[in-house]
């Protein structure tokens, strides 16, 4: 029987006996030094349906509330307890450090999209005043116009990211940012925060929405800190220039 892995927790974490994993399977922990993996037995690959996703997520959230936890990627199955111990041993230093750094926190996700009229304003600002008379000149003007439009869009996206940083302020321990600016998608961001600060940050983002009617800003979470586990790709790790203080980490 293989083992499905939900989360990495402190070795001292002992999930309540009545908690269940995928397909109602009982949970157990497999420990290596100060950390442990929370697992349940599984006959084959997990079902890729909403029920399985929600069960995995609910369990990770419950573990994090019960005792700090690192979320493991959905669909992780190892062949036996020895394989789990080996995986924990190979990554022990990184996992133990991440558990201290982010284990007690949550992340808030932000997706921002230009509203149609806002984008037109950006584009209109980049339009040249005079029409081109020759094909070559027209081509060069079109290239310049595209470049100016892309630069203006990127700068506007970075400006919005800065405003979000200010709104979240020093309640953020860390931030991941991806300035996309393709089509209507402006940017995606994730902020690492204390669970108790999530409501205040939501209110601050609401206030920013009132000032920035040119973009739709949608907040999701709080989620377990999926985006802040070490070694993530896709989201840039950038200096948090507009946040009032440097990231702070719990001891």
């Amino acid at each position: 029987m293989s083992l499905y892995v939900y989360a990495i927790v402190d070795r001292a974490c002992d999930p309540p006996a009545e908690w269940r994993g995928l397909a109602g399977a009982p949970l157990s922990t497999i420990g290596v030094r100060s950390i442990a993996a929370v697992v349940s037995e599984i006959a084959g690959p997990p079902r890729r349906d909403t029920t399985a996703l929600v069960r995995h997520e609910a369990l990770v959230e419950a573990l994090a509330a019960h005792h700090r936890a690192l979320p493991v990627r959905f669909g992780t199955v190892l062949c036996d307890a020895g394989a789990v111990e080996q995986a924990l041993s190979e990554r022990y230093e990184s996992l133990a450090a991440d558990l201290v750094r982010i284990g007690g926190h949550v992340e808030l996700g932000i997706v921002a999209l230009w509203r149609e009229d806002g984008r037109e304003d950006v584009n209109a600002a980049a339009q040249p005043a005079e029409p081109a008379s020759r094909a070559g000149a027209r081509y060069l003007q079109a290239r310049r116009r595209d470049h100016a439009r892309a630069s203006a869009g990127k700068a506007a996206a970075r400006q919005l990211a800065s405003e979000l940083d200010v709104a979240v302020g020093d309640r953020a321990f860390d931030r991941r940012l991806s300035v996309v600016n393709e089509g209507r998608l402006v940017m995606r961001a994730a902020y690492l925060v204390a669970p108790a600060d999530a409501a205040a940050i939501r209110a601050a983002i609401d206030e920013l929405r009132g000032r920035r009617r040119d973009v739709a800003i949608v907040l999701s979470g709080p989620w377990p800190p999926y985006s802040f586990v070490s070694g993530q790709r896709g989201m840039e790790v950038e200096p948090i220039g507009m946040i009032r203080h440097a990231p702070r980490y719990p001891q």
Partner: peptide, 17 residues
């Protein structure tokens, strides 16, 4: 997006990631 693209990656003999 978070569950299948982020989070802790452990080498598994069966993974859908």
């Amino acid at each position: 997006d978070r569950m299948i693209d982020r989070g802790v990656v452990l080498t598994g003999d069966l993974t859908i990631s």
